[in-house]
Amino acid sequence: MPRALFQKTGDAVYMSHLDLMRVFQRAFKRAGLHLTHTQGYNPRPSVSIALPLSLGVQSRCELLDFDLEGCDASCEEIAGKLNNALVSGVRVLEVYQDGRKIRDLALLDCTITLEYDSGVPEDACCRLAGLFSAPALIVEKKGKNGIVEQDIIPMIRRLTVNQVDGNTCALDARICCQNPTLNPAQIVAAIERYLPDLKPDFAFICRNEIYDGNETIFR
């Protein structure tokens, strides 16, 4: 089954996961690429996205698995056709065969950008780095059974903090993205809970790269 590596940037980040699935289904149709359909009462085109992306989060490393009906186009051709049919902000970087099993996907690199309108507070980088080197960090997580407390430290492999400019700090983190999953928004939640004076005026997240459990790039 072929797999596409794609990015979701710009205003496309406001599309939900389900919206994006629909956008792809239509893009395949516009591109003249016929998706196979699931069996059953209500057949659906077979496309699936590995790790659903939260609304507002940018990504350069999304994976889409799909299956085409009797298609002899090469991977490059498929990528080209799809890109002509896609909306701005969603761009296929590569299409390839024989991707690894999604269950081996384990880690994710992301950048969390923190914006401070009246300037980055003094010592912010140092204090932020300090917060995430604590032995445990309990953050509330909304689950199916209500709010649960969760220690996020075991799910952070590493984290560095840099000041980008006078108003911006960037947290670069490698975190677990599957079994267990750490939503990067939890990192922002930890800052708000434990360093309320460092609560940013705005924060946004970008997924940069994905890895398996051995920190080898996952494709």
Partner: peptide
């Protein structure tokens, strides 16, 4: 504002 409202994609345009 967009990440804080319901269904923000309806305010951005940029469709096919």
């Amino acid at each position: 504002i967009l990440p804080t409202v319901q269904k923000p994609a309806r305010y951005t345009g940029g469709e096919f």
